[in-house]
Write a protein that binds this DNA or RNA. Structure first.
Length: 821
RNA sequence: GCCGCGGUGGUGGAAUUGGUAUACACGCAAGACUUAAAAUCUUGUGACCGCAAGGUCUUGAGGGUUCAAGUCCCUCCCGCGGCACCA
């Protein structure tokens, strides 16, 4: 019988039909429901929850969800108690902007979007437990966001202060540092300006060291760890003070405090610079210079971030008229104001050493200031002719510190300052406190009340949730949120004295909502407390977290920070929320990021009708290594679709046969396949895992009627996490099981290590490292025997005619290399 | 500028960590089936030389280490990502 005749006798693979069928059955029998059986080992498999955008999801969004679903389903088969939840990061600007345009309330549009996306996720066959769903915009959820805020407030970790903050003129709100990219708003790409405003902050800087150090405890991509370390930006240096002299040489009361990481260059200081916002600027500026200084400060303030950055090389500044005294040599240096010194970093003032800092070098050249070389490299490479020499070296022109290495000098000089009581070794961070207030409507109201008599008073916990009022007009009001116009909301009584009082009208950054959502999943309906501790103790921390790299320093840093605070407050018992992190790459199509505005999205719903969800899942897994960006190729999809059809035909065919005699060669291949697939899946090497399954199927096809049912069972089990619908259907066809028996209750197959070993191998025979021959040999035969056999081969003899063998290298079970002249 | 990742056929990509480069798949070509097309199946497919057997070359470029380099070292080129006046 020819192969073709066999294949044609079955029913055709109709993806959509079987997918709908099994999704309904799974829903009915509840395999996606999280078991409360706490005796089993748990596996908490988490996806970064989506923002419910009106555009729905495209296949690019589904890449990461597919990966986590594969792992979740495999864990189920391994007998774990699996928690795989999904929810909605539902507050945020897009819904509000949409409301501004259409008048549709954000709550309405968000609800609608959620139902659309939920349907898409269900159609893709993801195994989410929808009973655990959370929605950050619902009072039942944000009651606890507010409650957390109050706990932080009580400990002084949430506070309000005047600060120079990032302002997006288009979104009309302030932004956290993390939300500014290249001087532009991360959302709308408008140029950011700076404003001095009274704003709410969370004290993330207090956790800087722990946020760095605990990165060593988690299994995260090194890239993300590096990004977080760089963002926190810890540096070690010295802070010291310098007395100030006025124009006429009289000593002032104030001192300038500077921070430097290169105190070894201090004898090269030829001036000092304060940032334009430095508090000493006014008292320090000489009468004769006042006008010039004020003008400069005004100009500096008006610059956008972009303007400041574009002038990177041009260092502007003005002389204040005052002088500072270098404590090391009592030298007087002029004090300047320059906007290349940042107010928010270090002390907002620097000692300038043009010989050994390129920025100072530019400034000194422009303002004709002295350049004194005080560091020499030992090999004489150092020169300051064309710019600063910024490397470490040996000190010169530095009095008693001459001849010391940079490193030694830093130690000695720090000690000298400490002994004199005018300085100390310290460390600084680039990280700033997290600015969480937003002047927008669609967010969590900050639960604070201002009373004329009592001042700033937190809302009582018993009054939570403080519900976001339904208002008609969402238009931003500039420095105030639209809530300021909702009189009923604003007017309240002071919880302490009962007098008339006003509410805070800013809302919270949506990243606050998402900084703790993974904790709420374990107990989403609890109205008594944020969650039951017992449940947290069982499920947390999460075992796997899958999502995009774009949150490397935003959400992921904030979530770690929240865990640490909550640990300190005794709310949870762990500090790192995500044990293993996986970042999927982005999907491109026609060379561009997949997005509705580019018109290059592949709509999952249409795709499901044409090929089925299993094909999409398999293609996403097969197209490239999962951490890499990948180009979606419409033509490439057909390959995995053919593969699924092949599997279908193979099994349909087998149903008609019923061979019971195992074939040893297939048996070996089967065990090898189980091993490779099981290992690859754990290493997230989904693409090679599928290649391996394809090879297995290709081989099975050639063996045709010699297959046993068991050969196919293994295939279906291995395929189950990847293409769950097809596998479930074929499993039932093969085993004749009732509907409520699911393949996901079956055990993930084991392999027998003894059975995967090949008894013979193909030995590679090289002469002078070039492959000249191959030979089938039994494994583990002695080197002597192999050599003898090889040298007796006609082909080899020919190659070695008139040549002298110098050396023979033998690698057991792999190759032999004959080195000859 | 600093930090990180990458560069392999026409395309997506594989390569047990130094041991047969190009697995698997797409595409393409030829053939089978068909009135025809699609689908499916079979065969071939890195480049060059050759009727063939076979040979030579090939992992961004150039050097080096080694019996052996896609893999290790040095220099350089290109692409992507992060940070960016952080003293």
């Amino acid at each position: 019988m020819s192969k073709k005749e066999n294949i044609s006798n079955g029913v055709k693979y109709e993806a959509q039909k079987i997918e709908k069928k099994w999704q309904a059955i799974w829903n009915k029998i509840g395999i996606n429901k999280t078991s409360e059986d706490n005796k089993k080992s748990k596996f908490y498999c988490l996806d970064m929850f989506p923002y419910p955008s009106g555009e729905g999801l495209h296949v690019g969004h589904m890449r990461g969800y597919t990966y986590s679903d594969v792992i979740a389903r495999k864990r189920l088969m391994e007998g774990y108690n699996v928690l795989h939840p999904m929810g909605w990061d539902a507050f945020g600007l897009p819904a509000e902007n949409y409301a501004l345009k259409t008048g549709v309330h954000p709550r309405i549009s968000t609800e609608k979007n959620i139902s659309i996306i939920k349907e898409q996720l269900k159609n893709a066959g993801y195994l989410y437990d929808w009973q655990k769903e959370v929605n950050t915009s619902q009072p039942e959820y944000y009651k606890w966001t507010q409650w957390l805020f109050l706990q932080f407030y009580k400990k002084g970790l949430a506070y309000k202060k005047m600060a120079l903050v990032n302002w997006c003129p288009s979104c009309q709100t302030v932004l956290a540092n993390e939300q500014v990219k290249d001087g532009k708003c991360e959302r709308c790409c408008s140029e950011i300006t700076k404003k001095e405003l009274n704003q709410w902050f969370l004290k993330i800087t207090q956790y800087a060291d722990r946020l760095i150090e605990d990165l060593d405890l988690v299994d995260w991509p090194e890239k993300v760890k590096i990004m977080q370390r760089n963002w926190i930006g810890r540096s070690y240096g010295v802070e010291f003070e310098m007395p100030i002299l006025d124009e006429k040489g009289g000593q002032k009361e104030e001192v300038i405090r500077v921070y430097t990481t290169r105190v070894d260059t201090v004898f090269g200081m030829t001036y000092a610079v304060l940032s334009p916002e430095h508090p000493l600027v006014e008292s320090l500026t000489a009468e004769s210079r006042k006008k010039e200084v004020e003008e400069y400060i005004k100009q500096a303030k008006e610059k956008t971030e972009i303007e400041r950055m574009s002038e990177e090389k041009e260092k502007t500044g003005v002389f204040t008229g005052a002088y500072a005294l270098n404590p090391f040599n009592q030298k007087q240096v002029p004090v300047y104001i320059g906007d290349y010194v940042l107010a928010e970093y270090g002390t907002g003032a620097i000692m300038a050493v043009p010989a050994h800092d390129q920025r100072d070098y530019f400034f000194a050249e422009k303002h004709s200031l002295e350049i004194i070389e005080v560091i020499k490299s030992e090999d004489g490479r150092s020169t300051i002719e064309n710019g600063a020499f910024e490397e470490d070296g040996v000190l010169i022109e530095s009095e008693k510190f001459n001849g010391l290495s940079s490193e030694r000098a830093q130690e000695e000089m720090t000690k000298w300052l400490e002994d004199k009581g005018i300085g100390f070794g310290t460390k600084k961070y680039k990280l700033r406190d997290w600015l969480i207030s937003r002047q927008r409507y669609w967010g969590v109201p900050i639960p604070i009340i201002y009373c004329e008599h009592c001042g700033e008073i937190p809302v009582l916990e018993s009054d939570l949730p403080l519900v976001l009022p339904e208002i008609e007009d969402f238009k931003p009001l500039g420095e105030k949120s639209p809530l300021a116009k909702a009189e009923k909301f604003v007017k309240t009584k002071c919880p302490k004295c009962g007098a008339e009082a006003k509410r805070e009208t800013d809302t919270m950054d949506t990243f606050v909502d998402s900084a703790w959502y993974y904790l709420r999943y374990v107990d989403p309906k609890n109205s008594e407390e944020i969650f039951e501790k017992k449940k947290i103790k069982y499920w947390l921390p999460t075992d796997l977290y899958v999502g995009g790299i774009e949150h490397a320093v935003l959400h992921l840093l904030y979530a770690r920070f929240f865990s640490k605070i909550m640990f300190d407050l005794g709310i949870i018992e762990f500090e790192e929320p995500f044990l293993k992190l996986f970042n999927q790459g982005m999907i491109y199509r026609n060379g561009e990021k997949m997005s509705k505005s580019k018109g290059n999205v592949v709509n999952p719903n249409e795709f499901f009708i044409k090929y089925g969800a299993d094909t999409m899942r398999l293609y996403e897994l097969f197209m490239s290594p999962p951490e890499q960006d990948a180009e979606w190729q419409d033509r490439g999809v057909i390959g995995v679709y053919r593969f699924l059809n092949k599997v279908w035909d193979l099994v349909s065919q087998q149903l008609a046969t019923n061979n019971q005699r195992p074939n040893l060669e297939i048996e070996k291949l089967r065990h090898q396949t189980i091993k490779k697939v099981s290992e690859d899946i754990e290493k997230f090497k989904f693409n090679t895992m599928i290649a391996c399954l394809m090879e297995y199927v290709n081989k099975l096809t050639t063996y045709n009627l010699q297959l046993t049912t068991h050969d196919l069972e293994i295939l279906i089990l291995l395929l189950a996490p990847l293409a769950p619908h097809l596998s479930e259907e074929l499993w039932h066809q093969l085993k004749g099981l009732p509907e409520e028996k699911t393949i996901f209750e079956e055990k993930w197959p084991d392999y027998n290590p003894d059975l995967i070993i090949d008894e013979t191998i193909e030995l590679i025979i090289q002469i002078n490292s070039k492959v000249r021959d191959k030979m089938e040999i039994k494994i583990n035969i002695s080197e002597e025997e192999v050599k003898k056999m090889v040298l007796e081969r006609e082909k080899i003899k020919k190659w070695l005619e008139n040549r002298e063998i110098k050396k023979i290298i033998y690698i057991n079970n792999r190759l032999i290399n004959i080195v000859a002249n």
